[in-house]
Amino acid sequence: MPDETAALTLSAQNLTRRYGEVVAVHQFNLQLRRGEVLGLLGPNGAGKSTTLRMLTGNLAPSSGGVEICGIDLLDKPQEAKAHVGFLPEIPPLYFDMTVDEYLLLAARLHRVPKEALTAALENVKQRCGLEQRSKHLIGTLSKGYQQRVGIAQAIIHNPDVIILDEPTVGLDPNQMREIRQLIRELGTASSVILSTHILPEVENVCDRVQIMHQGGIVFDQPMIDLRQQNTSLEAVFTQLTQ
């Protein structure tokens, strides 16, 4: 369980995003502590991906602010982004590169010091089970391995905040289990935001659940409370988003 006194890694205040007249995300608030795994749920089009894009600096909010490890994302985007690892819905992979080349590029882009490059590369390949695929072209890998490369890219610089948008899509049950195990491991040292449609995944992995619906948060509770009340996440989800 996250300790209440643990350092805040990510805090978002009143994040709002409009596309013309349409409000995609409305007054999104979030405080995330080190060692916390947050599950972000919501039906399609609820604004999850827009929120994640704002939290990673891919999209500027219409109003509101984001602080990562106490650094304002809008004022000092580069310093703040150095603490974030992001796996978007579609992994940003260069299919013509080998796994090693791609991960080295990701490490350099995220300012991993030169002397730590090899160590970081070996470590992340071992964690994501990519040792045997070092010299393979990413384009020839199966969907599951491509997803792993995407995750490896997001954690290679040991970020304090890891944001994963549907990381287990297209994986087989064994791979899903491995990835969940990995997310739990990551959750001990960093904060993780996990956006997904798979409810058992959240029940398994997360410490806290937020449900988004029509751009706003409609539910925010620690998993442990849910378990105590003996309510199923599925019942809550259906009730709030239908």
Partner: peptide, 14 residues
């Protein structure tokens, strides 16, 4: 087109 621009924009690069 390949959605790889996200990698560059999410990285601490201006």
């Amino acid at each position: 087109r390949n959605r790889t621009l996200t990698l560059l924009i999410s990285a601490p690069v201006s």
